[in-house]
Design a protein around this nucleic acid. Sequence first.
DNA 1: ATGCGTTATATTTTGTCAAACATAACGCTA
DNA 2: TAGCGTTATGTTTGACAAAATATAACGCAT
Lengths: 119, 119
Amino acid sequence: MKNLLRPDLAFRLNGRLWVETPDDRFMGIGRLELLTLIQEHGSISKAAQQMGMSYKRAWDLVASLNAQSATPLVQTQTGGKRGGGAEVTPEGQQLIQEFRELQERFQEFLAAEAARLLL
Amino acid sequence: MKNLLRPDLAFRLNGRLWVETPDDRFMGIGRLELLTLIQEHGSISKAAQQMGMSYKRAWDLVASLNAQSATPLVQTQTGGKRGGGAEVTPEGQQLIQEFRELQERFQEFLAAEAARLLL
DNA sequence: ATGCGTTATATTTTGTCAAACATAACGCTA
DNA sequence: TAGCGTTATGTTTGACAAAATATAACGCAT
């Protein structure tokens, strides 16, 4: 069993997971982080800012999430005391939790596979 | 426990795995397919053609693979009876096998997780 | 009324990656 | 020697995604 990789190179097993519907993505690691930050800040724009993402992109992602959900995952309000805002609904929180746990199991899978990989 | 996704939408859990080194990708599903086809046809150009990939891209991928390997994974020859050709070395075959098996375990992981996912 | 911060939405610009295109070299064959 | 199919390599073009930019609307606060 030879070692394949150049000995001066470190390798890393990496990967991505996502949930897709027939013609759109539904959930992924980026949307998870976005939802989490919206929950934390109560604002799409603040969440976007913190992720270094344009507000438009964040808003589009929220729109995609809501469009594919039975009930809204993020409820928004325009105008008002703080200028408006957004909050993650209970269903959104459930999605956050499920996907976060899935991500954790995936990371465990990656670690286990990386350990047995011989390159 | 509510169902989150719109009932008219089917979801699919999907993902990607790859091996990366500090400043390049080393192995992934595309490279696996390319190596397999090179082995099958003994030619980079034929493999590229079959994948609907430009020859240049295929050649670049092979160059990247070889550049990161302790010993070449693909040996090439210019000119000669068939105009030249390429063959996958034993080390390349080992990489094919290891990564293919990893892919299979990953698919099993995805199937198992999809089954327990409630959306 | 005016201003503020936010959501909502369209349009334009930019960046990135792959495709397309273009040559050259190689070594057998005829 | 001319031709063929392949590897080898650089340059240009194109496509797509994300960012940037630009407005508008909203509803509270002052």
